[in-house]
Amino acid sequence: MSRETTVNLLLALLLLGTPLLAAGLGEPFYVTLATRVTVLALAAVGLNLALGLGGLLSFGHAAFFGLGGYVAGILATHAFNAEPLFADIPATTSMPLIWVTAAAVAGLVALPIGAVSLRTSGVYFIMITLAFAQMIYYFAISWPAYGGEDGLSLSMRNAFPGVNTAKPLPYFLICYAALMAALLLFRAIEGSRFGSALQAARQNGTRLAAVGIAPFHIRLVAFAVSAMITGLAGALYADLNRFVGPSMLSWHMSGELIVLIILGGKGRLFGPVAGAMVFVFFEYVLGGITERWQFFLGLILLGIVLFARGGLLGLLSGKPRHV
């Protein structure tokens, strides 16, 4: 077992153990905090697929995160008010249905965005993905039907068969299971022929084209799958907060997702998990100490990017990767 695998296992156990312990000690808030870590990590796992494996630096993944959130929010609102969605399609509060819808919507929106964006590369790709996310952001702010800038408040969490989702621990376990499933998927993709082609496209797109594989299609599929995972995370995030608003779509959110990945170590399986744990930890601890917390958070991020290449997992597992 390599050192990184050991570290990964420890991280997975730590993320599972902390809320179990906190619940046992009667400190439900730490369960909620761990759920936040888990959901943000899930969103970043999605981005990591595009960014880490495919080298596609999307600065617009908040669009998919927010879309997923709005799918959950809109379906729940319609169901609560007993209004059908369109014509006679009924809304739902069933989490599995919402997840499928959220992932599907995110994926479907990602296809045209990806089809346009992937024609560009480098900084142009960063900026055009940002532009698409901004479009959706401004649309959400100014569209009155679903709360505009106020967003949507969910009166209760959506339902999962056989689980009381209102309680912190069961909801954490649902999110944790989703994160583990996404990590398994990531690992499977990484090791598959598709994954090899994706990584080859990152390293040398021309050579890949020369052997008869179109990098464009590989990347587009990766981009869409990546968006679907992030969209699923958005739906879970909306249920966690019982709230969805345009700030989930903002460029700060896109930036934060990137931060999580680099903090943890890009392209590494558990990079987003380590990144989310550290980011939320600092945000929480610093926020409790000083109102200048953003200043110190900035300093810490700067320190990590300058002096800890390969992110935290690079530090912990002691070997560079994808240099």
Binding site: P28, T32, L33, Y237, N241, S247, E283, E291, W293
Partner: peptide, 21 residues
């Protein structure tokens, strides 16, 4: 006293902490 940085998600998180923690 906690800072919400004018972000709804952060405010929600702080509220949970204040109520549960």
């Amino acid at each position: 006293i906690e800072d919400d940085a004018q972000k709804p998600e952060l405010a929600v998180q702080i509220a949970e902490k204040m109520i549960q923690g």
